[in-house]
């Protein structure tokens, strides 16, 4: 039972980080990233590839975060010319491209089989000690991500981003470098998501292309919308609530007497219904983003 609860809590931390990262983009910069899962995937694959190559998981984690930050920066530059719809579709295309390349490069990325036996980041502990160490590490990573996000939110960059989100021409008129602000936000968000993805890979000790399906992005979007777009505490709250509902119902098939793929479909339906319900009935989420006074 402790193992199960620790497992759920660890997953909540991972998804909280991914939601915090998405919130920097969607809530902060007003960019809807349909390819969020690519950032997490880059972190995960970097850890797996480096750990298999004998370079160690931590090296991989840093490399993955750097790669995702660069990718985020470039995607931000792409936002120079693209409006919301076009940008969202472009990010989905980039994420699907990554999934396709990974599925088809057997030598480096393990192809459709993925890479298993990824070394844990917390060393050679086992039993309850391992569960506790992994949960502690997850909480530490989450705390670091939240601290960075809060810091950015309060910084000059965070204020610029909120003005961009509310009124982009006004922001440009005020002399804010819109492209640069978006690129920085994306780079940061990429790094945080890669940290989550890298940790998750070593937690599962496996990475595979199925972890890069668009559904993962959709799950993270649901968390951000349920929590309330724009608030960091909202992103974490949304992640905890949605994750509890999604992975808490994983073992319900015993009660309902349904086949495995039917239960999987029901759980996805549940998440979709929650997202639609919130969008239609409570679009500001659990924790509403208030207007804030800006000191200039």
């Amino acid at each position: 039972m402790f193992d199960y609860l620790a497992w759920i809590a660890t997953l909540m931390c991972v998804y909280s980080m991914i939601a915090v990262s998405l919130n920097i983009q969607a809530g902060g910069a007003g960019l809807i990233n349909f390819g969020q899962v690519a950032f997490a995937g880059m972190g995960g694959y970097a850890v797996a590839i480096c750990s298999r190559a004998g370079l160690g998981g931590w090296t991989g984690l840093v490399a993955g975060m750097a790669a995702a930050a660069v990718a985020g920066y470039l995607l931000g530059r792409l936002g120079r010319t693209l409006g919301g719809v076009y940008w969202a579709i472009a990010t989905l295309a980039v994420a699907e491209l990554l999934r396709l390349v990974i599925s088809n490069t057997n030598a480096v990325a393990g192809g459709t089989q993925g890479i298993s036996a990824v070394a844990p980041l917390w060393g050679g502990l086992d039993g309850i000690a391992a569960s506790a160490a992994r949960l502690a590490l997850a909480l530490a990573f989450l705390a670091a991500s939240v601290l960075v996000a809060v810091h950015v939110d309060r910084s000059q960059l965070g204020r610029s981003l909120r003005i961009i989100r509310e009124n982009e021409p006004l922001a440009a008129g005020l002399g804010i470098d819109v492209v640069s602000a978006k690129s920085k936000a994306l780079a940061l968000a990429g790094g945080i998501a890669a940290l989550a993805g890298g940790f998750h890979a070593s937690d599962l000790s496996f990475v595979g292309p199925d972890q890069l399906l668009p559904f993962e992005t959709f799950l993270a979007l649901t968390m951000v919308v349920v929590g309330g777009l724009g608030r960091i505490s909202g992103a974490v709250a949304g992640a905890v609530v949605v994750e509890a509902l999604y992975d808490g119902t994983r073992y319900f098939h015993g009660f309902l007497g349904l086949a495995n793929d039917q239960i999987a479909a029901l759980r996805i339906l549940l998440v979709g219904a929650i997202l639609l319900g919130f969008l239609l009935l409570r679009p500001n989420g659990i924790i509403v983003d208030r207007p804030r006074r800006v000191h200039v």
Binding site: I32, L221, G272, L275
Partner: peptide, 8 residues
């Protein structure tokens, strides 16, 4: 976001 939700 809603149309992605409907799709899923």
């Amino acid at each position: 976001i809603g149309s992605l939700a409907v799709s899923i």
